[in-house]
Design a protein around this nucleic acid. Sequence first.
DNA 1: CAGACCATGTAAGGTGTTACATGATTAT
DNA 2: ATAATCATGTAACACCTTACATGGTCTG
Lengths: 174, 174
Amino acid sequence: MVRGMSLRHALLGLLSERPASGYDLLKRFETSLANVWPATQSQMYGELTKLAAAGLISVSAEGPRGRKEYTLTDEGLAELRHWLTETAPQRNPRSDTLLRVFFLGVLPREQAGAYLTGLMETSAKEYEDLRALERSVDWGDDRLSVYGRIALEYGLRLNEMKREWAAWAAERLG
Amino acid sequence: MVRGMSLRHALLGLLSERPASGYDLLKRFETSLANVWPATQSQMYGELTKLAAAGLISVSAEGPRGRKEYTLTDEGLAELRHWLTETAPQRNPRSDTLLRVFFLGVLPREQAGAYLTGLMETSAKEYEDLRALERSVDWGDDRLSVYGRIALEYGLRLNEMKREWAAWAAERLG
DNA sequence: CAGACCATGTAAGGTGTTACATGATTAT
DNA sequence: ATAATCATGTAACACCTTACATGGTCTG
């Protein structure tokens, strides 16, 4: 467990709410965690096998079509808590969007401006998508509601910031 | 060239300003691009070899200690322009910081609050670091100055947003 | 001449993506 | 029946990190 490996912790986190199969978890990734930690089917099944081998989760039931339901073990919960409290979040995730900005100077100013206005538009659109998501969710006072709402607020503020920044930058280019 | 591969483009981008050796590029990554696209020494030398084999850069001079100076070729510049204009930036980079937020509910509320106030502090500190960087740079009107300043502004606004968001979230928990 | 810095490379292993592959069960 | 969905897995390949390895050149 050297670095990163957050897929592991994402799986442990989802299983901390309730037991689930790989297929269930895949669906929940697609809906709730897609914006924060996308994962593919391939990767998930492999990771679940490793987590079970390491004793952090266990097969608690088997169903039709070879379905295996996994449950978080005490060791798994301990590892999840450890990750949350004792390990530092990554400082700066890589950003190819921002990397491009560094090199916009190789383009004619007009095309550089088009890149920035394109960013404005995608930010505005994503903001609206998140607003729609916010309206569609039935927010209760369960764990996922409380913290999911906080994560969603981050997305809203981020996209608002991005749109304003891109507008500022486009104007700055003249 | 299937997906991502932005290290390639970062190298092409830096070489579009002036020729440089692997060692030079490593230093420039450490200073200017560290916050946006960190890269290790190992990875860079390997990537430079591949780029040269693909004809996107070429060895333009050799110096002491086996130093090889690379220069961007016409093909390399075309590829850089193509990446800037024809390929879409990644929509959502993974965020382990935000992933943790989803699962803060497994901690006692006090510890969840501590995580959020910790984020406030790191954002505030990074904001100050960037302000210091801003003051230390001699901003001219060359390409890197214009677009580097825009990228830095993004960092400033991002950290301001993060700090406010974390404060809002911590208060929301009560 | 010793230490700092310049300069490049290989190897092993983890993580992530895409494509391929297989088959059971349920609903129409 | 047949199509959609449920359900899991393997293989190949790209990317990234860490550690290991080697040696030349310059400065005090």
